[in-house]
Design a protein around this nucleic acid. Structure first.
Lengths: 155, 155
DNA sequence: ATAAAAAGTTATATTAATCTAACTTTTATA
DNA sequence: TATAAAAGTTAGATTAATATAACTTTTTAT
């Protein structure tokens, strides 16, 4: 009998394909619909590249695509997109709010790290952040001291 | 006048090529010499793939390669390899010793994250680890409590 | 209602990273 | 020291992700 750990990856898509699903989910949240052109603009690729990806993801069962129309996530696509988005949000918060990395750089690096770490590992990042807020940062001063310490550069 | 931040990336190699340099450095440390076959074995690729990569890195000025002989790092190659190895070590320690991720998974994920984060970000990870050891973990109990908290899984 | 513009699609090309298979050089050994 | 085995190299194929250019469908504006 095969067994799965709770943290098991629910997909084996490339980083690039995960990005397409993530972007579609983001567009649907922001604009109600995702269209080929919007996806292309978001990801800085050409429409034709989006088409190739979308066709693959449709075969794979992650999206549905009505020709010349909207791109939609299937149940499976939603699950994967949600997982990637959750990783992104946690990593972004960790980098920005705890490591004090500039907003834009934090976002950019979260975007890359999200494809490199498991759900379980991401969860640990989240819990460390929660733990420190709960038990370590009592006063504003505490977090300011951490910031100062992190920003010091010693070779 | 162009200016560089201390944290600027000193290379613009792909993750794959960074891995080759990292592996060569590791082999030189462990066995004194790096050979095509050893590199292939370490990275789980074929000799021919190593050759393609090595030829590129030679043109690029990162390695020297005597036909049928040893592969060596140039000064530039050493700098890049050192940078990647340092990222790896810091991330690995952070994942394993602070987030309590299993040794093997920590090593594997550090291997991926190392190509996704800047030197500056890696430095912040290192400093957070140092900071917590210095100011937060006073007793053994403190770190055990963190471990327990992190290992709890709440949906 | 129709023509021009915008959006989307398809076919084909390019690039990076890998592979297989054929070939060459080096090494080890009988 | 000749030859078989091991190691390394090269040429050409494959795959994934992208692009360009030509084409089709949809939308918009008169």
């Amino acid at each position: 009998m095969t067994r799965f750990k709770r943290s098991e990856k629910i997909n084996n898509l490339s980083a690039s394909l995960e990005d397409y699903l993530e972007t579609i989910a983001m567009l649907k949240k922001e604009k109600k619909h995702a269209r080929v052109g919007d996806i292309a603009k978001s990801l800085n690729v050409k429409n034709s590249s989006v088409n190739v990806a979308i066709n693959f993801l449709a075969k794979n069962g992650s999206v549905m695509h009505e020709r010349y129309g909207y791109v939609d996530l299937t149940h499976q696509g939603k699950k994967i997109a949600y997982e990637v988005q959750k990783k992104h949000d946690i990593l972004n918060k960790f980098l920005n709010k705890l490591l004090f990395i500039d907003t834009e750089i934090a976002a950019k690096e979260a975007c890359e790290i999200e494809h490199a770490v498991s759900v379980a590992t991401t969860h640990r990042f989240e819990r460390l952040y929660m733990f420190l807020n709960k038990y370590f940062f009592k006063k504003d001063e505490d977090i300011i001291n951490l910031k100062k310490y992190l920003e010091k550069w010693e070779e």
